[in-house]
């Protein structure tokens, strides 16, 4: 149990720090790609909703402590993990690689959109209209995270998942 959790926890720490100090600076129209969302979606899709949600909670705690918005980040990350869990692929499902990757992409899009929605409803630091934040920023966030997932999938995950 401890052994199986150690690696994801280390990855979670690394991804959260990478997000806070790296990806959050790459903004396009106020939106930046979110590596934590991609990681949470991956965890939820391949290990289940509860684990994804718990990782979301932990990521939210860490990122929230660093950014100063602990409560709202915690809530957003937990819900991201929960929604991505609807695309869960069980270990014994005999799903093909294409099916697995499709579920991962769908999980990322779902998590990105709901995460953006929750954050938009709770905070509006740039004073943008709500509909713009929900739909335009939401669509942009989904697109960016999807591109990031495709890149990560092609570079690292394809081999890992096939094993």
């Amino acid at each position: 149990m401890t052994k199986t959790l150690t690696l994801p926890i280390i990855i979670l720490l690394a991804v959260t720090l990478l997000q806070v100090f790296g990806f959050s600076r790459l903004t396009l129209l106020g939106v930046s790609p979110d590596a934590v969302t991609v990681f949470l979606a991956f965890m939820s899709v391949f290990t289940g909703q509860r684990k994804g949600m718990t990782f979301g909670f932990a990521a939210g705690f860490l990122a929230g402590a660093l950014s100063g918005n602990m409560g709202i980040v915690l809530l957003t990350r937990t819900i991201e993990g929960f929604t991505a869990g609807y695309c869960h692929v069980p270990e014994n499902s005999h799903a093909t690689m294409t099916q697995k990757s499709r579920m991962l992409y769908l999980g990322v899009v779902l998590a990105s959109f709901t995460g953006n929605l929750v954050f938009s409803l709770a905070k509006n630091p740039l004073g943008e209209p709500l509909l713009y934040r929900v739909f335009v920023s939401g669509a942009l966030a989904c697109m960016m995270n999807l591109l990031l997932t495709i890149a990560i999938y092609r570079l690292f995950l394809r081999k890992t998942l096939s094993e």
Binding site: R50, T54, G71
Partner: peptide, 21 residues
């Protein structure tokens, strides 16, 4: 329904943190 209960628990903690920010 343990996934929903877990979600409720986590969201509850998050909302408490927002309340006592």
């Amino acid at each position: 329904h343990n996934a929903y209960l877990l979600l409720l628990l986590y969201c509850g903690i998050a909302l408490l943190l927002i309340r006592f920010e």
